[in-house]
């Protein structure tokens, strides 16, 4: 009886030790994942005080490269002053139905594409929010995706301060023809 109690106490201590050691890691992991997905009905969502709206969504096919398509998103964000920092470091990520994730192009190709689209500079989501002071801003993002997933794309918006909450938009980009 007494020995059983000791064993139980040791087990409880082990579990408690694991819990205490693992708690910060669990919190860190939650900061990297979108666990609570909110799916807005329209093109607008509110994420911890910040209004996020898709102003424009377009798909551009390249004649030289028939296997890939360029997705162009124009996002408008208008944070309340209190929430101005909440989307700092935020990444608007495209997801397809198969669990693949596409980050916005931030290399030379992305800059070139934005120039073609008539936008001179890509303002990333984070920068526009920091500059906003509650006034709101528009940011342009371009993505390169396989052409067969264009119809199944979703946009995931979240930031380190909002996670595990995130907004998931279902996209239906319109074909764009360059002038």
């Amino acid at each position: 009886m007494k020995r059983g109690l000791w064993i139980l106490a040791a087990l409880a201590m082990t579990v408690a030790a694991c819990g205490i050691a693992g708690w910060p890691d669990w919190q860190d992991w939650r900061r990297t994942q979108v666990l609570n997905e909110s799916r807005p009905e329209s093109d607008m969502a509110v994420l911890s005080g910040t209004e996020i709206r898709i102003r424009r969504q377009a798909v551009l096919t390249l004649p030289d490269l028939p296997d890939r398509a360029v997705i162009w998103l124009q996002l408008a964000v208008s944070p309340t002053p209190a929430a101005a920092a909440s989307l700092g470091g935020c990444n608007p990520v495209l997801r397809d139905g198969r669990g693949r994730r596409f980050l916005p192009l931030s290399d030379e190709l992305g800059l070139k594409l934005l120039k073609i689209l008539g936008r001179d500079w890509a303002i990333s989501c984070a920068q526009s929010l920091r500059a906003a002071d509650g006034a709101g801003a528009v940011s342009d993002q371009v993505y390169l995706v396989p052409v067969d997933v264009v119809d199944a794309l979703e946009l995931e918006v979240s930031g380190p301060e909002t996670r595990p909450d995130g907004a998931i938009f279902t996209l239906s980009p319109q074909p764009l023809t360059l002038p």
């Binding site: 296997d67 693949r100 994730r101 596409f102 980050l103 931030s106 290399d107 390169l144």
Partner: peptide, 9 residues
């Protein structure tokens, strides 16, 4: 060094 790989491309 500077290129991004995209899934499936």
């Amino acid at each position: 060094d500077t290129a991004w790989m995209q899934p499936g491309l």
